[in-house]
Amino acid sequence: MTVFIRNALTRLYLFSGGCAAFSLFSLLFLVIVQMSSRWFELDFPGLSNYAGYCLGSASFFGLGYALNHGSHIRVTLIVSHSGEFRKFIEVTAVGVSMVIAGWFAVHAVINNINSFELGELSQGQDVTPIWIPQLAMSLGAIVFFISLLDLFLCLLLSRAIFSTALTTDNKEF
């Protein structure tokens, strides 16, 4: 059962990273189209808004994947000198981060539902229902919360770290 859950979480993180990569490639494509349209004096209104949506999507979808692969910036000044309190500090820091990410994910989903129910449209020329780009933020925030919960449980239960999220010298818990 544990192996099944671990494989499912790994696939979730990879899918989230794939969505982030797709968003970045879409952003690149939109920037190229926007540059080309200026050269040929064509007008595609709202392209900059869609580029912004892709950037937000890439940012939020990348959070869980980056945490799982150890790409988040960590300040280890306190942790490296904490000695026997190292595990306590790690668990506390990840726990606080998890609570904040969970709070953000809940409110992102609530905001997304409200935007859908009210039929809100973007302010730009693209007139996109705003719940569509907000959906990427909500899903990315949920995946990030899940990855922090995963890390928290691994640290709390003194199991091997799920990936390289914590540096290799932290595997001695």
Rank of each mutant, 00 (worst) to 15 (best):
9 L>F: 11
10 T>M: 13
14 L>D: 06
14 L>Y: 10
17 G>E: 03
20 A>F: 00
20 A>E: 07
21 A>M: 12
21 A>E: 04
23 S>L: 02
24 L>T: 12
24 L>P: 06
25 F>W: 07
25 F>N: 08
25 F>K: 02
28 L>F: 11
29 F>E: 12
32 I>A: 14
32 I>Y: 07
32 I>L: 15
32 I>Q: 12
33 V>M: 15
34 Q>E: 11
35 M>N: 09
36 S>V: 05
37 S>Q: 11
37 S>G: 14
37 S>Y: 10
38 R>T: 07
40 F>M: 12
42 L>A: 09
42 L>N: 08
43 D>F: 03
43 D>V: 11
44 F>K: 05
44 F>M: 10
45 P>H: 11
45 P>C: 07
48 S>H: 09
48 S>T: 09
48 S>L: 14
50 Y>F: 10
51 A>D: 02
51 A>T: 04
52 G>M: 04
55 L>I: 07
63 L>C: 01
64 G>H: 02
65 Y>S: 04
67 L>I: 04
69 H>R: 00
70 G>M: 00
73 I>Q: 00
73 I>R: 01
74 R>L: 04
75 V>I: 03
75 V>F: 02
79 V>A: 08
80 S>C: 01
80 S>R: 08
83 G>N: 08
88 F>Y: 07
88 F>H: 04
88 F>P: 01
88 F>A: 11
89 I>Y: 13
89 I>R: 10
90 E>D: 15
93 A>H: 04
97 S>K: 06
99 V>N: 03
100 I>Q: 14
103 W>H: 09
105 A>L: 08
109 V>C: 14
111 N>M: 14
112 N>T: 15
113 I>L: 15
113 I>K: 13
114 N>C: 06
115 S>L: 15
116 F>S: 14
116 F>K: 12
118 L>D: 13
118 L>Y: 14
120 E>Y: 05
121 L>F: 11
124 G>M: 12
126 D>L: 11
126 D>V: 12
126 D>W: 09
